[in-house]
Amino acid sequence: MTAIEILFWASAFLVVYAYVGYGAVLFVLVKLKRIFFGKNELDESEVFEPEVALVIPAYNEKDYVGEKVANSFALDYPKEKLKIIFVTDGSDDGTPDALRKYDGIAVLHEPERRGKIAAINRIMPTIQAPITIFTDANAMLSPQTVRMIVRHYRDAKVGAVAGEKRIRRQAEERASGAGEGIYWKYESLLKKWDSDLHSVVGAAGELFSIRTELYAPVEKNAILDDFMISLRIAKNGYKVAYEPEAYAEELPSENVKEELKRKVRICAGGIQSIVWLKELLNPFKYGILSFQYVSHRVLRWTLAPLALVLLIPLNLQLMLEFGGLYAVIFALQLLFYLMAVPGWILEQRHLRVKLFFVPYYFFIMNLAVFLGFFRYLKGRQSVLWERSVRAKA
């Protein structure tokens, strides 16, 4: 086998493993764990209702806070044990005043805008509840969210619990919505299996929780604060559990341009997180957590997109030299990327054919990795980001 063939098959393996293979490996490992060690069952024989702080960062969210307040009040949990806290630092659109009209919530506000993580670092020392749940102002929670999350904290080994992110379906779903929805369904499945095997590797800011005592201030220039908070808790030996019955629903990005903007920020933050969490790359120290972290996160933000690019010229050269199987693989690669073109065209015309949305969204996701990487190198990704425009309900 020539050096080019070795590089081609290594790249192909990396791509398949990062996007599909890891899920298959997880599935098998979880099945084996259940066969040899049984299924972990939560002990719910006694009522468990600790005090909870629901922390909602809200920067210029005046259009959403009314619905968010109503959604928070509708949560099925004892009102005297649930403290709802909105943090509105920097908001200048009337968000704090709109919130102060409601009884039963706390509004913490400072006029200076220093970013979400600076606001969270500021208010966390004031939290007295043993459990803190973080959620976004434009994400609507399921009624059982708090109960489903806190039950995991019966286990002293659990330091954080990640909820599920869901994308609201729309009658006429654009490529951004269809692709985003499919992506998060797959991500949710991987998180469930990650949790069953050992620990979730990174929570989404739309909905996650921690033991308040485990919170450590995050660097003020952190891009993915939610990811850093949850991974550092896992790094310190605690499990990050996953609870699919606690979910946050939000509308998809208005269009793929807005979704790309969001993904580029996430990928820039991903590179930053890999640098900051470099110790987690050591499997001799962190064992299965390192395996999950590298397989689920690191490869997607680094080597897998690079391997995708390498596959095209490598495959072309091997096809011209050997034909046969390499010709078939090249044709399949070409077909997949060509299918992204009608996906882009349909996106402009507001039409919905998911057959084309998947390759289009996949292309956008990997394009975002390269753009995010260069943005990180240039230091151009500010924590004071403008959130992506969401589609109308």
Results as ranks from 00 to 15, higher is better:
I210P: 14
R390W: 01
F227G: 02
Q333L: 03
H109G: 11
Y242D: 04
G323W: 11
Y360F: 10
V28M: 07
G90Q: 11
N121K: 12
L42H: 05
A137T: 03
D93F: 13
V369Y: 14
N40R: 10
G343V: 02
R174P: 05
A248H: 13
L318M: 08
E219I: 02
F362W: 14
Y153T: 10
Y361N: 00
Q292H: 09
N71Y: 10
I266T: 09
Y77R: 00
V256I: 14
F357A: 10
E112K: 15
L351N: 10
I274E: 08
P283F: 11
L318P: 04
E219Y: 00
E259L: 01
N138R: 07
N366I: 15
M365N: 06
A327H: 04
K79E: 14
T95G: 02
A160P: 13
D225A: 08
T132Q: 09
M365T: 07
K220R: 05
Q272R: 06
M228N: 07
K39I: 04
A70P: 02
E5Q: 15
H296L: 09
L316V: 09
K83E: 09
R151G: 01
I105P: 01
Y238R: 14
G343D: 07
I210Q: 14
L82F: 04
Y247S: 12
L224E: 11
V20I: 14
G287F: 11
I6R: 15
L314Q: 07
W9C: 03
G66S: 08
K285M: 05
E112S: 13
S273P: 02
E258Q: 00
A216V: 01
S45Q: 13
H152L: 13
V240H: 13
L311G: 06
Y19S: 08
A156P: 06
L320F: 12
G205Q: 11
L82S: 00
L260F: 06
E187D: 04
Q292V: 03
M228L: 07
K185M: 03
Q144N: 04
